[in-house]
Amino acid sequence: MTTNVTSTGNNARTRPNPGLPVIGRLVAPALLVVTVLFGGGLLLGFLQGLGYLPAAGMKVFTLQHFANVLADPDFFRSLGLTLYISVTSTAAAALISIFMALVLTSLAQRHRVVHFIFQIPLTVPHLVIAVAVVFMFAPTGLFSRAALKLGLINSSASFPLLTNDSWGIGIVCTYVWKEVPFITLMILSVLRRTGVELLEVGKTLKAGRRQRFFYITLPTIFPSLGAACLIVFAYTFGAFEVPFLLGQTYPMTLPVWAYKNYSDVDLLARPEGIAIGLIIAAVVTTAVVASQLLTKAARRRGLVL
């Protein structure tokens, strides 16, 4: 007698894909909120950027506002400043994060309190850190007064300008402080999962300390570091509150310029504000898509993220 044994061939690891319609139904509520709030806002902004603002009597679609923005010599100054702040703060945060991740990896599990303290800035809003930077770095701030007390400077006026300055030092410091824990944690998870073991392999394969860093650590963390940096770049490029509080009045960063135009009492300035906003959105979207592509490519190559 023969017995036919049928099997679905499925186990816990190869659970069948529920299919797009089922997944679609499950995520529909969240997707709807995002689509209406974000997509709706983007569409409305896009229409206004094209000059469609019936409240101000503008009903003709035109690219003129984009042309005006791009033709404005201040646009490239603002773009330059925004790029400078984003790139500088992202690069500084990345370098510090690599160092911090290596230090934290070498700490034993009993140093959990260090990890906890390190993660605190993640929960603090950017605005709060910006205000803290003002209290510390402003000419009348904590450091200035301390320097005055110590006799290092004669008056508050001789304290170097660290906020609302042309180099955006206060802004960069705020972003670095805020973003270092985020990038560090992204790298740390990779280092903890495979990095430590790969470093041990490197040791037994005769790689010295520097060689291990350049040939093992950096390639291991590269996808996570790259993805995290692109996200940080996207955020710092598009954020307006920190440069609004800590930046100089001229030139402004693109987000501050967009906000000022948008909130201008003259409704006719709004389409240009929106146009700038859409240009920012394009750059930010490109960075986020690049981050996703990098992550996907790394996964395809079997790298741990």
Partner: peptide, 10 residues
């Protein structure tokens, strides 16, 4: 090692 621990980026 017990795990192969090959460098995935090579």
């Amino acid at each position: 090692f017990q795990k192969t621990l090959l460098f995935p980026f090579m």
